[in-house]
Write a protein that binds this DNA or RNA. Structure first.
Lengths: 194, 194
DNA sequence: TTTTTAAATGAACGTTCATTCATTTATATT
DNA sequence: AATATAAATGAATGAACGTTCATTTAAAAA
């Protein structure tokens, strides 16, 4: 029997993300995607059940890549300051390394399509949960609602990233998120937990 | 001559937003919209040049409503703490009062369609700029990059709102953003600026 | 070398899309 | 009451949509 050409699947996945990031979900038609990936429309249906399945698989792939990068060098026993800073750095690393994946991810999360299993992702959440409860035990932070914790610990970071990815920001010029600027913001965020 | 029935335009605008919020931009077809708004497809083209124009007009409308609510009772001479808290409260007011508008707004902003004039909106930005430079003059906050300021001052707020609007959040149950919870988060954010 | 199997294809399917157009309807003006 | 004008319409347009299918192609198994 003939063997699956994994380059084909890769091309489909990659071009699909590019098209979505550039033109939105509306901009992804199966025929245009086939053309961009140099395959027949019918070939797409060998690798994906249908358009919706393709979108969901892309989302799951991104989520898994994201989890993997975010957890590099991380463990729940790290001190609060060290651990949170590592999280910020890892997340930035992911965004810089895979800007298309991240843009796709954000667009997907802000759309009404979110309808996916998150097996791998909830393991990631479990790690974070342990990390936080450790920090509370040690008295590094006070006990608070998880959503409030999350908003203060990561809200500023994601806002900075948004600025970083925009063409023009507040002062009509490009904002580049460096590690130094991130340090500045991070030190301020730490004060919130004192 | 026959007069324009403004109820028709209102119905078109309202149903369009509902459809987008519920099914994404893909979910907005002109024929379905016509049916939902109880008009003929051709009628939509009396009020809007085409589909893209409709989307842009919706975005502009939301932006203007948002600016208006955000500036209620606000002026750039308020103390930093009072002014920023008022901004948080006004923004929450908008989101609670017009959840559909807000969801549409967020979806639009996270899509690649953003291609709009922002005349009214830049007046709003000017107000905020004066407010911040006043706060610096008075020594209420230190001088810092505007994007860093913005991220710390509003990042946590928007993160809380995101949790508020999600069906299930971190702990698999609904998170309701009350003014008390917002106060808690706000007090922590203030520490960042000390 | 032949057979078997699944990958890969281009053309075609029926449906839905955004938009247009000839016609009708309602109202302000004469 | 008659006229003028623009709102409002339903039907029609060709293009684009997601998906299927009969056929061809390539490689593993015999």
């Amino acid at each position: 029997m003939r063997i699956k050409d994994e380059n084909k699947e890769y091309a489909i996945r990659e071009k699909a993300m590019e098209m979505i990031v550039e033109h939105g979900f509306e901009g992804l038609s199966m025929q245009k995607l086939a053309k961009a990936a140099n395959v027949s429309p019918a070939t797409i249906y060998i690798y994906f059940k249908n358009r919706e399945d393709l979108l969901n698989q892309l989302f799951i792939e991104v989520q898994e890549t994201f989890s993997a990068v975010a957890l590099e060098g991380f463990n729940a026993e790290l001190s609060f300051e060290t651990g949170l800073w590592l999280q910020w750095k890892n997340r930035l690393k992911f965004i810089v390394k895979y800007p298309v994946l991240y843009s796709f991810y954000e667009q997907f999360r802000n759309s009404p399509l979110v309808n996916h299993s998150d097996i791998q992702f909830s393991r990631f959440k479990a790690q974070m949960k342990t990390f936080i409860s450790n920090a509370i035990k040690r008295g590094e932070i006070q006990k608070m609602e998880p959503e409030i914790f999350w908003s203060i610990a990561y809200g500023p970071f994601y806002s900075l990233v948004k600025f970083h990815l925009e063409e023009k920001t507040l002062m009509n010029k490009k904002f580049k998120l460096t590690e130094a600027k991130m340090q500045d913001a991070f030190n301020r965020v730490l004060k919130s937990f004192k």
